[in-house]
């Protein structure tokens, strides 16, 4: 407990950034990162669930009997996933359709359950909020970064939150450079594994401290 409190937040951004340093929750990382927009949308949905479940688990940590704690955590997480599902269905229906099965699957995302078990069930509410926010934002950034690499190479575009704020993609190599041929492998299924594997290797090159 000697660690300064701000470190609970910053560790999620670099030292323990989810899919790279902690290799957890890979399914959405591989599944939805065909574009920056999808990656960030998925990341934000996960952050919301992570933050809320961290708060509730931390508040209830002295009430929940340790033998049934995993079941309790899963119910808490599932409740917030339903909230996210309904809200996304109401306000961002297109994104909800693109992410499809991965939204209900936040329930079984190891990052969320892992933080509840490893952090929130042992720490106070303030630290848990910082931890949830840090890890959540780190997860969002990684999904965004992987989405950026895959979309840029695979489609030659960068789309940041298409319709409400910008019209279409902000960078479009296919239009601005007619000789450019997208490396389509990157947005297809095998490309996801290879791109993530190579990004992990790049992260391993940089020391974590």
């Amino acid at each position: 407990m000697a660690k300064p409190i701000y470190q609970e937040f910053t560790k999620g951004l670099w030292k323990e950034i989810p899919p790279f340093r902690l290799v957890l929750g890979l399914c959405p990382v591989l599944g939805v990162t065909t574009s920056v927009e999808n990656g960030i949308g998925m990341g934000l949905a996960t952050t919301f669930v992570l933050l809320c479940s961290n708060i509730l688990v931390s508040l209830l940590r002295k009430v929940i009997p340790s033998k049934v704690r995993i079941a309790c955590f899963i119910i808490i997480i599932a409740t917030f996933v339903i909230v996210v599902e309904q809200v996304m269905k109401a306000f961002v229906y297109d994104l909800y359709n693109t992410l499809g099965v991965f939204i209900p699957l936040i329930v079984v995302n190891c990052v969320v359950l892992g933080r509840a078990e490893a952090f929130a069930s042992k720490n106070g509410i303030f630290r848990s909020i910082l931890d949830g926010l840090g890890i959540g934002i780190g997860f969002t950034l990684s999904l965004g970064a992987l989405g950026l690499v895959r979309e840029f190479l695979g489609k030659g575009t960068i789309t940041v939150w298409g319709e409400p704020f910008f019209e279409g993609p902000i960078v479009n190599l296919v239009e601005s450079m007619p000789s450019f041929v997208p490396f389509e492998f990157m947005v297809q299924a095998p490309g996801a594994f290879v791109a993530l594997g190579l990004m992990l290797a790049v992260m391993n090159l940089i020391p974590s401290k």
Binding site: F193, V194, G197, A201
Partner: peptide
């Protein structure tokens, strides 16, 4: 295996190659 690629990293690249064959 080169050092930065060890363990999970190379595993993911292999998974990509297997995925390619299923493709």
């Amino acid at each position: 295996v080169p050092k930065p690629l060890q363990d999970t990293s190379i595993a993911l690249v292999i998974a990509g190659v297997i995925s390619l064959s299923f493709y």
